[in-house]
């Protein structure tokens, strides 16, 4: 596509801290290149704000290559903006036209309190992982990679689940703010492998219990999460977690 410049109007959520009430503020941005990423557009805007003595807009970002999942922006009513299987850093300004008004909000969920502007606290995800998203191994020499035979299909399915970057787009897009896609991806990646089998039952029970404790909503199978996931994590993982949960709940050992 041919390169072009555009002038935009941004409506961005401004909030001082988690205790204050936020509101939208409108910013005009001029001369934005269609080859810029959405975050670079924010960099340009922030430079302008800082040089004119105004407060900049706080937003999360890290890798800027679509693998860290830090950029939690709800753009024009979609998690990570209009493109599918995409993070905000990989969203380019050619997705917009000259004269567009773009509304940018943080993730909205009780479990993800807004810290400042577009930055939300996603430590609820960390606590879910701490509740069971690991395997316990004794220290010592690393086991040879090929010592455990693993079915290619299981290895691939596990790897696909493990590609979850924990960005929270599933929670943001879900009408119930449910974290089922995230938790099911973390449960699945370990449940599918022999290394994950010993703690299989306690893992799913503990992680789901923590998920509920954090105040995420329930899954009503709208599959909005799968559609908005930047890594294309499948809702088949949610069904797998439901199976794991049912089995673990019926087991006499757990």
């Amino acid at each position: 596509m041919e390169h072009y410049n555009m002038n935009l109007t941004l409506k961005v959520w401004k909030q001082k801290n988690s205790n204050s009430k936020g509101s939208f503020e409108t910013y005009p941005v001029k001369g934005i290149s269609s080859e810029m990423s959405f975050l670079e557009m924010f960099d340009v805007l922030n430079e302008q704000l800082i040089s004119s003595g105004k407060e900049h807009i706080a937003f999360d970002h890290d890798c800027r290559e679509g693998i860290c999942g830090a950029c939690s922006m709800y753009i024009d009513g979609r998690a990570h903006g209009p493109w599918s299987k995409n993070t905000v850093c990989q969203l380019h300004m050619r997705a917009f036209k000259d004269g567009d008004t773009i509304v940018v909000e943080p993730w909205r969920a009780a479990a993800f309190p807004v810290l400042k502007d577009l930055v939300v606290d996603r430590s609820a995800f960390d606590r879910i992982i701490q509740a069971g998203g690991f395997i316990s191994v004794n220290t010592g020499n690393a086991v040879d990679a090929n010592a455990l035979p693993i079915d290619k299909k299981d290895a691939d399915t596990s790897f696909n689940a493990a590609s979850c970057i924990g960005c929270g787009a599933c929670v943001a897009a879900c009408k119930n703010s449910s974290a089922m896609l995230f938790v099911s991806a973390k449960v699945s990646q370990l449940a599918l492998l022999p290394q994950g089998k010993p703690e299989r039952e306690s893992r799913v029970l503990n992680m789901v219990a923590q998920m509920d404790k954090e105040g995420f909503g329930n899954c009503t199978n709208t599959y909005a999460c799968e559609a908005e996931c930047p890594k294309g994590i499948s809702v088949a993982n949610i069904a797998r977690m439901n199976r794991e949960y049912l089995k673990a709940g019926l087991s006499t050992e757990s």
Binding site: D76, G77, R78, P82, R108, A224, A227
Partner: peptide, 10 residues
């Protein structure tokens, strides 16, 4: 959300 487009994903 002030602006939401759920029709795009479900």
């Amino acid at each position: 959300y002030a602006v939401n487009a759920p029709g795009a994903n479900s």
